[in-house]
Structure formats: structure tokens, C-alpha cells
Design a protein around this nucleic acid. Structure first.
Lengths: 353, 353
DNA sequence: GGGTTCTGCTAGAACGTTCTAGCTCTCAGT
DNA sequence: ACTGAGAGCTAGAACGTTCTAGCAGAACCC
């Protein structure tokens, strides 16, 4: 119980207040509060006691102003993306043990990426972690010239110098989904894509390649989609009416797949009886018992951990890390960390009728 | 184009750098950057030009350290709650015109409210806006003793002195839902509740009161639920098997209602043919064309705006505002702002068979 | 022409920390 | 007894701003 924050006047207590109460210098209090060495055990205890008594809390701003390191990682995320929420959760978890703090800045309606990044810079973040950034490559390059920047889930081609990229092998994920469906006996497999969303192009390409490799080039069918339930629902309405109807569909992500499922249920199209559905991301959504979606899992906590690791590595001048277990035969440019996806088979896929 | 951030050494440019380049004092540059008066038009232009040239950005930390006002509102939110995401969006929008900045701190797995609040305090926020806080009343009271605190969507009974509360009239919302269903001809109306979630008790009470008022006390049926889709799905499984089955159900919130809808679809229970479903919150979810949920709307942007307004009012010593158009006949304690809910009728409710 | 009041500007002290140097002991080694 | 090394502590200068005084000079008012 810090009881009353009680310093004579109404101000928040400072180092000087603690120092006065403990009868030492402010410098020593600073040493004690930081847990640095250079203080005797007895005095240390006395200082801590004094700090506790008056409810002292160090002022993060003043601290950061003085010490040149701020140990602060700026994270830009989309408020309306469950996938980003999961990532942020993982980033918090990874940053703490590495000794870094997180500053969040949301992208929302009326608050674009430009603004989100500006506030992070004003806060003196040492590095930026951008979740699925949509900013033009030139802007990202400009930022990367100022401080370490990690782009999560969006790759840039051609590679932007100095920009770290952490992503899932989206093409490989699409391949796994197609392989799974083909193994079940499907041949007529459609894809609802994600338009310009980060990763969409790779997933589209992976789908095409995999279909061709199975000799199913003639069955390739790509419907314009997007990242929301509504995009999925719209595409599903088209599919439901198609003759012949594909026996399987791979959606851009889980939200999109959810929209597909719902539309099919309403139109009396049985899943997986009449048609199999695969999602992408393995968000909380897909795991829900009543959705139970077969999906391509992105290892979100690994993605988050790696993003933090790359940012910290750059800050601390660690050598360029190479991810062990990287995919073979793929051209992965330097500064890009690519994680293998993993198909999670649940209840929305089965052999065709 | 700020081109190169070019100051001789690699450091970030400061006031002094701009001052040197423009041939004025740092104090004057400060005046110009803040847009304060006291600088001549010509010099002002010259300073701005110099700042632009070297890519100067004011250091938020140093600025806040010096000026006693930080103009920073700390917002605690749950990463996994879409409702909170919507609120945060509204808070951003409301804070900007009021001249305040937002600092976000998320509650997530492994990061409790205690920790979330601590980081906000360390950042020298002037006031706290807590979205659906679960912390014990004593803790909230302690905080409210230190700085203005606004609790959104959770009310406390008995009222915590000094704590501002902004919420929707949950009981009134439940009443509207019941009235709507009764007007359609329903009598056997069940409620899937939210357990200990903020607002759950009021919604439960509102449901009970409304049922009694319609002489339907004998039909009161409350199933244990929660705030997630799974909670709704579990309760719906119970309902689907019940004989006689209620002809309508009011779920704790939209996520819960979505779970209900999905389970009913799977069990062949038609909505709204066999059973009507009402949600609560009117989140993005409910508006999706393929869900099209009748729900009790919380005016999220108003809630957000009011939360910011109350925090700012307390900071600027404005008199205790009283909400115009408040509900009549209700005992609303001082420091509590209660917004009327508004039923949004969509496609999941209809007269019973 | 002698005040007063503006306008435009500057020097220098905060703000609450951390950091650099250096001081004063004590104690061990010669 | 003299030196050296360390441990424990402190004074005072940063960090990049804003704020308080105050100083020149121009403009205004009888």
C-alpha cells in the first residue's frame, strides 16, 4: 500500500524527494532505482524504503531524455485487424525479456499510417515495427534510412535497402492448402484472393503454381476478394451459383473464409459435404469450435518474436542473422526472414462427393 | 522532401541546430514551432524554412518534461475486444480536436491491467481512460485519488468517489430488446448473459424487469454465457435442444450472438423463422450483410467522445457537466454519464410462427 | 519630448533524470 | 608507513525543450 502519494505539495515525487528523505544524493537514488552497482546494501535498502514511503515512480520521459538509449520499440498496427491484435500480443511478450518497451500507434479511420509513424518518431522510438504496412516503398526506404525498420507480413520487391522483412512464406502456404485439397481428391479448386493486401500476390502465385504442378491449370479460378467477411461472402455468392461449382475453395484469410462459410450455410451448400473451405492465418476465429476452420497457420508468436529480435539485433549491432530451417530453393534476399507456414486441418475440408 | 536528415554528425536535429541555421535563438525557434505569438512574419518563415531543410522534428519527451502539461490521455484497452477497438478509434478522433494526444496500453495475455496502467502512469499521462476495467473498486479508487480517471462501460456500485463513469444504459437496452420482441408477439424469451463482464449485471436486471412488466415473469430464463462466440455457441446448443424451445433469445453481445446464430444454422434451427436473435453493441460484426443482426446499439463514437470530454473537463477544471436528455426516473449518481441505447432492427428478428 | 505601451527578440533557468569525474574513506600489499 | 585499488558516495554538467525576465527599438499619446 503506497497509501497517500504524500509529498508536502501536490506534486508527484521526484528523485530529489527520495534523496532528501533518505539523506543521500540524487545520483545515488538514481543508482539504486536502476539497480546499478555502486551502492552499499544498507543504503540501498534505506533508499528503497524511502521511495516506497512516498510512492515514488521514475519519470519515463526524463529518464529517456537523458540516457541516449530509449529502449523503446514503436509498433504500428491496424485497430480493426484481429491478426494484428494477435501479433501485438506476441510482440509485448517478446519485447519484455529483451529489455525493451513498446509504444503502440494505431492505424484507424481518419488516422493514416503517416500519422501513426510520426507519433512514434516523436516519442523517440529506437526502431519501428510495422504490421502489414501499406505505405509506398519510397516512404519505407526513407524511414529505413533514419532508423531500423521491420516490416511484418509485407515483403517488398525489389527489396528496400536497410528494411528488415519478417513474413510467412505465403506462396508455400497456398501450396500446402492446394496439396491438401488435391490429396483429398479435389481437382476443381477456386481461390478468393486478397486484392492488394500484403501477402495477397504471393498467395495468388502459390495457388497458381501448385495447381499447375498438379496438372490442374485448366481449373484455375481466381475470384476477386479482400480481407473482410463481406468480401468472402460476396465471392461465395458467385461460387454458390456457379455451374459446375468448384468442390473446394481457398480463401485469402480467415475472416474472408468465415464470410464464405456463412453464405454457404445460408444457401444450403454443405461444408465440407458439397464444398471444402480453407482459410489463412489461423487466428482465434478459426479455432472457435463452431467455425472449426481448416486453415494455413502463420506462427504468430514466432513472427512477433522474430520481428522484435531483428529490431533489437539491428539496434545492438548484432550480425545479420540467418534463419535456420529456411525454405530451400527459394530466393530469399538478405534482411528477409521467412517463416514456414503449417497447415492446420480441421473440420471444413473433406473428400469431394 | 526532407531529403537527408543532414546535420553534420549523425544525431537527430534539435532546436539549437535550427536556431544556428536560421541565425536566431533557440527560444525563438521554440516559439515558432509551437505556433505561439511573439515572432515576426519574416523570421517565422525563415525559421520554418531552416527546420524543413534539416528535417527537424520536436522531441516529444523533452517537450513534455519541461511544460508541466503533457496533454496526454492514457487509454487502457483489451486487444482482443472489437468493441474496444471501435472505442479507441472514436477516442483518437475526439482527442485530436481537443488538443490532446493518446497513449495506448493494451491488456493482453500475460499483461494485466495493473501493468497496463503502470506504463501509462510512467509516461506522465494527465488522465486515464479505462475501457471496461475489471480491476477491483479499491484499486480504481486509489488511482482516482492520483489523477482523473474515466471508466467506460463499467459502472461501480457503490460509486467510487472521483471516478468518472461513461456508459450505456444497459438495463434500458435490454428493455428495448424485450419490448421489441414482445411487440412482435414473442412471449417465451430467453437471455444468454455475460457472467461478470462489465454491464452484464445491468443487462440481466433490465431483462428481468422488462419481462415482469409484460407479465412474462414465468418465462424468464437466463442461461450462463460470456463475451465470446464460443460462450454463445454453447448456450445455443442448450437452447436448440430445449422443449419447449423459446421463440426468441437475447444474447449478451454481438460476438455471443454470432456464436448463437452459427449453432442454430448448423442445427437446422431457422433464424428468424424458428427463433429470433438479438445482440448487443452494434459492432462492425452485426452490420455485416451476411450476419445482419438485430442488436442494441451503443453509440460508440458518442461514448468515446464523452469519455474524452469528461477527462478533459476534469483536467481543465470545467464544472461537472450534466448530460442533456438523460433518462428519466433513474437514479444516476454524480460523475456518471449514461447514454441511451438505440435498438437497431435488422434481419434476425421476426414474429414467432 | 517624455513618458507609456507595444513588438520582436534573447539569456538563462528550469524540468527530472543519467552520466562523468572525482572525492573520501578503508584495506591489502609491500 | 607509503602506495594502489577498490567501494561508496557526491557535485555538477548534460539531455532538448519551455518558461520567465528583460532588453532594445518603434510607435503611440498627449
Amino acid at each position: 500500500m503506497p497509501a497517500t502519494p504524500a509529498v508536502p505539495d501536490g506534486k508527484r515525487p521526484t528523485l530529489a524527494d527520495v534523496a532528501a528523505r533518505a539523506g543521500v544524493s540524487t545520483a545515488l537514488v538514481s543508482i539504486v532505482m536502476r539497480g546499478a552497482k555502486g551502492a552499499g546494501a544498507a543504503t540501498r535498502e534505506r533508499v528503497l524504503e524511502a521511495a516506497r514511503e512516498i510512492g515514488y515512480r521514475p519519470d519515463a520521459r526524463a529518464r529517456l531524455l537523458r540516457s541516449h538509449r530509449s529502449r523503446l520499440l514503436g509498433v504500428q498496427f491496424g485497430l480493426q485487424h484481429p491478426f494484428h491484435s494477435d501479433l501485438v500480443e506476441g510482440i509485448y511478450a517478446a519485447a519484455e525479456p529483451a529489455g525493451y518497451q513498446i509504444a503502440l500507434s494505431a492505424v484507424a479511420a481518419g488516422r493514416g499510417e503517416q500519422r501513426a509513424v510520426e507519433t512514434l518518431l516523436d516519442d523517440r522510438c529506437e526502431a519501428l515495427i510495422l504490421l502489414g504496412p501499406q505505405a509506398p516503398a519510397a516512404r519505407l526506404a526513407e524511414l529505413a534510412g533514419q532508423l531500423p525498420v521491420v516490416s511484418v507480413a509485407r515483403r517488398l520487391r525489389p527489396a528496400v535497402p536497410g528494411l528488415e522483412v519478417v513474413r510467412t512464406a505465403d506462396d508455400e502456404g497456398a501450396r500446402q492448402a492446394v496439396d491438401h485439397l488435391v490429396a483429398l481428391g479435389h481437382r476443381d479448386i477456386a481461390h478468393i484472393d486478397g486484392g492488394r493486401a500484403p501477402g495477397a500476390a504471393d498467395r495468388r502465385r502459390g495457388y497458381r503454381t501448385a495447381m499447375n504442378r498438379h496438372g490442374l491449370g485448366g481449373h484455375i479460378r481466381i475470384l476477386p476478394g479482400g480481407l473482410t467477411e463481406e468480401d468472402g461472402a460476396a465471392a461465395a455468392r458467385v461460387l454458390a451459383a456457379a455451374r459446375p461449382r468448384p468442390t473446394a475453395v481457398m480463401a485469402f484469410n480467415d475472416r474472408c473464409a468465415t464470410g464464405v462459410l456463412d453464405t454457404f450455410l445460408r444457401s444450403g451448400v454443405a461444408v465440407p459435404g458439397d464444398i471444402s473451405v480453407v482459410g489463412f492465418d489461423d487466428t482465434h476465429l478459426a479455432r472457435l469450435a463452431h467455425i472449426d476452420l481448416t486453415t494455413v497457420g502463420q506462427d504468430i508468436s514466432r513472427l512477433a518474436g522474430l520481428a522484435v529480435d531483428r529490431a533489437v539485433a539491428r539496434l545492438e549491432g548484432r550480425p545479420e542473422g540467418r534463419l535456420e530451417g529456411r525454405l530451400e530453393g527459394d530466393e530469399i534476399p538478405a534482411g528477409e526472414q521467412v517463416i514456414a507456414p503449417r497447415l492446420v486441418v480441421r473440420g471444413t475440408t473433406a473428400p469431394p462427393r
